[in-house]
Structures are given as structure tokens and as C-alpha cells.
Design a protein around this nucleic acid. Structure first.
Lengths: 333, 333
DNA sequence: ACAATTATTGTAAGCGCTTTCATAAATGTT
DNA sequence: AACATTTATGAAAGCGCTTACAATAATTGT
């Protein structure tokens, strides 16, 4: 790999000048700029970004931490962010936190030590304090799907409580009164908030939640299956299940079918997230839309606005989830 | 952020010594090592990986390039690779190539300029020559899902031709004779190979392929939908459709259902890839399993073996896809 | 007791770039 | 013509680390 030094030699100028044309530092005469560009081309020169980062303390890359690299949820988020960044010549460095505190911290520190210019974090396990401290460390970052009052300006998130409320309210409006709930891991704030929304909707209809119709799952397909199993074993009748995400809804649907319950005739099911595959399920899943694409783009905009570009757009910090009506909920009024 | 210099000062040793304990260079006495570790802890010291990379020309990170960051296919690959690497303290730097030559090259060069120790590439648009040249540049890399004879040792891939063959042969064995094919973009080698496999199976049963029963899709849901539309418009009868991937199969299924064809009674459908969602479709999709998880792990092993660890395992370079029988194909014998 | 090893630590030269500051050349001003 | 500005370039000091190589201390053998 050619270095800046060889370029400067070939072009007959100093290192500094070459550096200036690399960075488009206007203070170079057209004539020398051309000489340098030619030399760069001739040597197939490519700046060493590591050296650039070290010297400038910038890296033109933003770190992204998601819980998992798989799953359509994170996938589209990463994808949207990367696309938005690349448009401005910025790159994404992506790593996974695996919903584990140690792993998440490790990931964050890794990204910082790579001198990412900013971070976009989908963290679940680290404490609020850690994130607040991160802010005092002067590291530009934005959290996705997590709201912390002390650093509200750094948070972009969905109103999960409202989503949970909307889902259950829809079931209630369709005439359901005996509603089971398959929750996510309640230590995760989004799972907790969705559950709270569910409770609020019930309360609004003066329905006492039945503890035995609540199952705490793991946000995965398997959680939905186990949930249905447990719910059926209680022997308590229910005409609908609200699930805290689509994956568990998919699991619930297959478990129900295996037990001979037809959907939505025997049991209605509603999900949450509106993942790509929810259109493929049978019946097509009614769910709550998580505008992940918008949120990803917004996170990217936050970074661009705060770091790279001089535009002062306002950014939306709270997104309201909307109901997506498909075929998995029956009106029994 | 504390630097190595401050640590050395606090511990009362030289920079070199601190560097040695960071890198576990055994040539440090237990006593001084403790002093240094203590100083590091006291200062909450974290090595600057950028400086490390620049000085050592290693980065403990491997670059991954996939076509897209979304999609369950790439998702699980990235996920498996990251997991395997992290076990050895290595990190993944991920970027997307968007199946576009310029974009893929840009991504590769970005990863190189980040001094990744090795690359794992899922590239589709760059030429064989480019990859061959990459090898001469002494950059350790492995390609996934792409076989280039000249650099066979760097390729890990699925026998796509065999997969295409297996899928169509299964349809034939189930009694189907009028088989439509929805291909992927044929400029992509995997799409081409799958199609070739399809043709071989037909040939084995002495069936002349009907050009009009072949549609070249885009590997996306929409491609499957359009494909079905075009196929039905020909007016030519067919009892089964083989699709070059699951996404198009899902699209084909919904299009068929919209046209009043029931699956598998009127038309059988088989996919390719065995994506997660293929279990959620209705009817559950029969397909060809792409052992993406194994391939991801193998790619990671290749890197680990070649770069970091001194184990001389042999690595599987060619994977044979297997049939997954579910409910979307009817036996009409 | 002394040379020969060996184990431990320090010195200093980079890695490839950016950026401040100084200098030189070109231009404008009166 | 003398001086102030502006513009273009270069010299050189880092950025925070690694790693020869040199130097010193500790250990061993005889």
C-alpha cells in the first residue's frame, strides 16, 4: 500500500499538501492539487483510515450496537442506518450486545476505542447510570428504544406503552373480554411498558387482569409456544391472546393450531412489531407497527446533524405505534 | 481517556513495560505486572485500539461484507460469525455491499483501510479477477457462497447446483411433470447454479424445459408475485413451481392464493434457503436447507485458524444442501 | 569469585497521518 | 515604492501505541 509520503514524493510536494488535498482543504492551488491527484491515482493510493483516525481523532464512522445481528427487527434498523450514513460518506461499525450487561459494555467500549465519532445504541442490559455517565464522557450517542429522562435529548424511542394499550384495546373493541397476555422479559423496559399498556386498556374497560392468564416469555417463537401451553393448562377460557412481539405471536399461533384451536375462530391473536414475516403467517397477523425504518433513519439523522452536517433540523424523539389490522383477530361482538 | 503514558507514570515503569502487560507478553515479572494492572484499573485505562492497530499493523478485528444488513439470511450469518470471533476476543466490523460492484469494492477497501486482519466476503458483483488480485495483495480473506477455482482455498460455499437439482428432483419424484421455475437474477452465480441444477433434474427425467415457464425474478418477495402473474398469463398449465429462494416462494404463494389457487392442492411450491420464516408460512414451506449457520461458523474458523490460533483443523469448503420436506408440495403420483 | 546466561526493563524509532506555525510568494493599497 | 493582506506551501511536532535493540539485573555454572 502506498503511503502519503510516496505520493508527496512523486508529486514533488510536502506531506502537508497531500494531506490537504485528501481532506479537500481548499488552501491548495488548483495546479498542485492536480499534480497530487495524479500521483495518488498513479500509485493507487488509499489513505490509511487508522492513521487518519489516530492523528485527527475522528474516524468518519459511527458505531452501532444492537442486541443481535440476526432478526428482521435489528436487520432493517442497521440497514436503514447504514444507508443514511453512507450517503454522506460515513461508515457504520456494527457489533452485538446480546442483551447482556457485560457484553453490551464491552461492545460500547470497543466502539469508543475504535474512535467512532458517535454511537447509536440499542442496549437493554446496561443501567441508566451507565448511559448517563456516557453522556458526561462527551461521547455523542443516541439510544434507540430506550427512554431515560435525564438524557431525553439522546433518546429516540417508540411509545411502547401506547402500543400495548392499542393492541389490547383493539381486542376489547372487537368484543373480547377474556384476554391472555404473553409478555416479553419484564426486566426489559420495552416489554414492561407494553405490558403496562395492556393493563391500562383492561382497566379502561373495567376488567381485572387475571394473573394466571399472563405468561412471561422470552420474545422468541419458543416463548409463544410455551406460553400457549401454559395458558391452556390453566383451563381458564380466553378468546384472545395479545403477544408482546410478533415472534411470540407466531409461536403462539403454531402451538394453538397444534392443539386444534383455529385462528381466529377459536382464539384471536395479536402481535407487536410488524416484522416482515407477519405477512407470511397464516392467518396474516394483526399487529402493532414498530416504525423501525423511520426510527433508524431518525437515529442516523441525529448523528449527521450533531456531527457532520450543518443543518438544524428538529428530530422526532417519540414515535407512536399504529395498529395493523390483518386476519388474526375476530370480531365477536 | 487515560493513555499508556499516564499508566506507565503511575506504575513507575516504562511505556514498553505497560505495553507488554497489555499484550500479555510473558516477559514481565509478576511483581511489575501487578503494579501495572493496578495503575490501569485506577485510571480506568483502555487501550486505544486505533493506535494499537497503527503501530502493530493488526487490529484484532475481521471485516465482514454482506450484500445487505437486513434479511434473515445475512442476519444469521453475521450473527454466527460474530459469536465465533468474540469467543477469541476478536471483533467484527460489518458493512454492506448492496450487490453493486462499486459499492462492494468500496466496502472491501474500507475494511482493508481499517486494517482488518482478515475479511469474510459475501460479494456478488465484483469480478473474479478482483478477488484473485485481492489474494495477491496478501490480504487474508474468504469468500462465502462464491466459488472461484483459482482461489479455491479461500472459498466456502454451498453446492447451489446440487440444491437446485434436489428441489426439482423432489417435485419430479412426487409426480410433477409440468414445473415452472422462478429464478433469481441470473447474473448472480448462485442463482445461475440453482437454475442449472433445475435443468439437470429435468433432463434426467427427459423433460424439455419450457422457456415460457421460466421467470427471472429478483430474489425478493415481489419477484415471486410477479413471477406467478407472468406464469399464469401464459396460460400454460403447471402443477408445481420451484423457486430459487424462499422469499420468492412466499411471494409466489400469496400471489397464487390471490388468484384462487390453493397450495398444494392446485399448485405445489418449493423454496430454497430454509429461512426462519419458512416455518411460518401457510402451508409450511418445503425447501432446501442452506446451512448458513455452519457456513458462517466455518468462515470464522477459517479466519481463526489462519490468523490467530495455532490449530490445524481442516475446513469444509463445500456444503451439500438438504431437502426439507414440509407441507407445500403434494404427491400427485 | 567471575564469566556466561537468562530474565527483566528501558530507550527510542517508527506506524501513516493531521495540523499548528512559520515562511514564502502573490496580490492589493496608498 | 513601501507596506499590509492574502494565499500557498513546507517543517515538524504530535496522535497512542508496538517493538527492535540496548542496558541492566538476576541467576547459573564452574
Amino acid at each position: 500500500m502506498a503511503t502519503i509520503y510516496q505520493v508527496s514524493e512523486l508529486a514533488g510536494v510536502s506531506l502537508a499538501t497531500v494531506s490537504r488535498v485528501i481532506n479537500n482543504n481548499s488552501l491548495v492551488s488548483e495546479k498542485t492539487k492536480l499534480k497530487v491527484l495524479e500521483a495518488m491515482k498513479k500509485l493507487d493510493y488509499r489513505p490509511n483510515t487508522v492513521a487518519q483516525s489516530l492523528a485527527s481523532n475522528r474516524s468518519n464512522s459511527v458505531g452501532i450496537l444492537v442486541s443481535e445481528l440476526h432478526g428482521s427487527f435489528y436487520g432493517s434498523m442497521m440497514s436503514d442506518i447504514e444507508l443514511a450514513l453512507r450517503e454522506f460518506g460515513k461508515h457504520a461499525i456494527i457489533t452485538a450486545g446480546h442483551s447482556d450487561e457485560k457484553s453490551e459494555k464491552e461492545g460500547v467500549e470497543f466502539l469508543i476505542s475504535r474512535s467512532c465519532d458517535a454511537l447509536i445504541l440499542h442496549v437493554e442490559a446496561v443501567s441508566d447510570e451507565y448511559l448517563i455517565e456516557l453522556k458526561t464522557r462527551k461521547i455523542p450517542f443516541v439510544t434507540v428504544n430506550r427512554y431515560i429522562p435525564e438524557i431525553a435529548a439522546n433518546c429516540i424511542c417508540l411509545d411502547n406503552e401506547m402500543g400495548g394499550y392499542t393492541a389490547t384495546k383493539f381486542l376489547l373493541q372487537q368484543g373480547h373480554r377474556d384476554i391472555a397476555y404473553i409478555a416479553g422479559p419484564l426486566w426489559k423496559t420495552d416489554a414492561k411498558n407494553r405490558y403496562d399498556g395492556h393493563l391500562r386498556a383492561l382497566q379502561e374497560f373495567n376488567i381485572k387482569p387475571n394473573k394466571r392468564l399472563i405468561y412471561e416469555g422470552n420474545f422468541q417463537e419458543e416463548g409463544g409456544q410455551k406460553g400457549v401451553q401454559v395458558l391452556l393448562e390453566t383451563g381458564i377460557a380466553f378468546s384472545a391472546i395479545a403477544c408482546a412481539n410478533d415472534e411470540m405471536a407466531a409461536g403462539a399461533m403454531s402451538a394453538l393450531r397444534e392443539k386444534g384451536r383455529s385462528i381466529p375462530d377459536d382464539v384471536s391473536v395479536i402481535g407487536f412489531d410488524n416484522l416482515v414475516f407477519s405477512r407470511y403467517t397464516y392467518p396474516k397477523l394483526s399487529t402493532i407497527n414498530y416504525p423501525i425504518s423511520d426510527i433508524g433513519k431518525t437515529a442516523a439523522s441525529w448523528v449527521l446533524n450533531n456531527l457532520y452536517i450543518d443543518r438544524k433540523e428538529d428530530i422526532q424523539h417519540l414515535f407512536i405505534p399504529e395498529l395493523v389490522v390483518r386476519d388474526s383477530v375476530k370480531n365477536i361482538n
